[in-house]
Design a protein around this nucleic acid. Structure first.
Lengths: 257, 257
DNA sequence: ATGTCTTTGTGAACGCGTGCACAAAGATGG
DNA sequence: CCATCTTTGTGCACGCGTTCACAAAGACAT
């Protein structure tokens, strides 16, 4: 789901399933909110509701971390926050570089959720010389030439790619060569990386297309098996197929495609 | 995975598995690239490599759509582009509203991948009166008061929420009440919606936390089962746990948390 | 027309994730 | 100290998704 490579032993390291790992941040957020409201304990039922999951699933997830609950009472909020944070590796500082400071890169740089979770923006990097030195979110943008130097001197192991699709693989290769082993990719491309490097992809266009599929299905059901066009005009299909050189290729891309 | 509700019959409508639907956009992108290079046909092996998936999986995915391939030859690129586009509902125009025009909302508005996939930004909406009328990506921002009117008069069925977490549920409720049945949520909150409404979530912070988990695991493996701190200094765990009122709550939020 | 060779489409096995349902654990009150 | 009541932790079954492996289908050459 994440790596661009063939297989992966997932997360059998200490037996924590990948699906569980993906939910831990969700639990952590709900727990943090409870912690701020000084709630001492929660039941699996309450916490599950807050996180939007099944309570049995939540209990099973926590069982992979250990027996942190008390039967008849529930879970100690503070303790659980600590345990999950530790498990996720959030008790340490993770320097991060963002490459590609367009609209999206700037939005990411300004994002407040970084610092509060142990992530620190070590540098903003862009290929455009005109951007160099320009402050974004209080940090001066540096040129791509500095990439290797920045990564090595800051011990950066996590990189965020927010470049146009055409530049992504090249940037990725340089990041990996310089020592980055985890990449969050916003560019609409399949990245190829060596074994041992994790890639996670965020793709807005794909999410919208999935929504469109379900939307079409809904419209089709209530309007007969024919699937009538909902409100808006139906576009010529050929326009989608051909249309050559759409604004999607790589040039001004500012977000996943 | 997407809905904030309990269960869902997934996509048993015509038997197309949800996992397959999620991959169709991936295939479509690869196929579009081939189409632009005027490649007439592709084998499942080639296309699978381009999309970064297993070829058997790809063939099985396509088999849910029908038998569009020719044995001994492969798939006709143009024809497949059309079939997938149609299946995803991309042969029609989908008006979309973006609510919350902060850094992220603006980045989304500027995103070129919208139009090229059949999505059209019908309106940008923000609660800040100072934003009203201000042009972003060539479109004037409108005030939240107009929300219901815009949705109804444009027949909008897909909404994008890019507001701070605190406002998300409220915006969501209004969108749904006005007729929106698919929501793409960038706010770091669990949205509660009625049955029949699809919600997909994009959460940057969660992705980073998952990467941190794997990163920590890698570091721990090569430095003994103790798990030495990689380069950066280890933060006090308490700072993560307590820290009350971090920049994550809802006020200046500009991205998923 | 026949044979060979390529590639699809799919039956079957496997593994992961989910959710039910319940026994064990422990808190709490008398 | 015992009874009761709440909530955890988990064994089990089920269903979805993935992958293998191969028969069927068709292109292409002779």
């Amino acid at each position: 789901m994440a790596t661009g490579r063939t297989h992966r032993p997932a997360t059998r390291s200490r037996g924590i399933p990948e699906a569980t790992v993906a939910r831990l941040p969700l639990y952590l957020r709900a727990l943090t909110a409870l912690s701020e409201r000084s709630v001492p304990t929660v039941s699996s039922e309450e916490l599950a509701a807050a996180a939007g999951v099944n309570s049995a699933k939540l209990r099973k997830d926590f069982s992979y971390l250990g027996s942190y609950g008390t039967r008849g009472v529930g879970y100690d909020v503070e303790y659980l926050v600590y345990q999950i944070s530790r498990e996720l590796g959030l008790t340490q500082d993770w320097p991060v570089v963002i490459v590609g400071i367009g609209n999206l890169g700037a939005a990411l740089a300004n994002y407040g959720g970084f610092a509060s979770r142990g992530f620190r923006v070590a540098a903003l990097i862009d290929a455009d010389p005109a951007m160099a030195g320009k402050p974004v979110a209080g940090i001066g943008v540096q040129h791509t030439d500095e990439l290797e130097h920045i990564i090595e001197s800051n011990g950066v192991s996590i990189g965020v790619i927010a470049t146009p699709a055409g530049a992504a693989q090249q940037v990725c290769d340089r990041l990996v060569a310089a020592g980055v082993t985890s990449i969050l990719n916003f560019a609409p491309t399949v990245l190829t990386v060596p074994d041992g490097v994790d890639v996670r992809k965020v793709d807005l266009s794909i999410e919208l297309q999935i929504l469109a599929f379900h939307e079409q299905r809904k419209a089709g059901e209530e309007a007969g098996p024919d699937g009538g066009a909902p409100v808006a005009a139906t576009r010529a299909a050929a326009a989608v197929a051909g249309e050559g050189k759409g604004p999607d290729g790589d040039v001004p891309a500012v977000m996943p495609a």
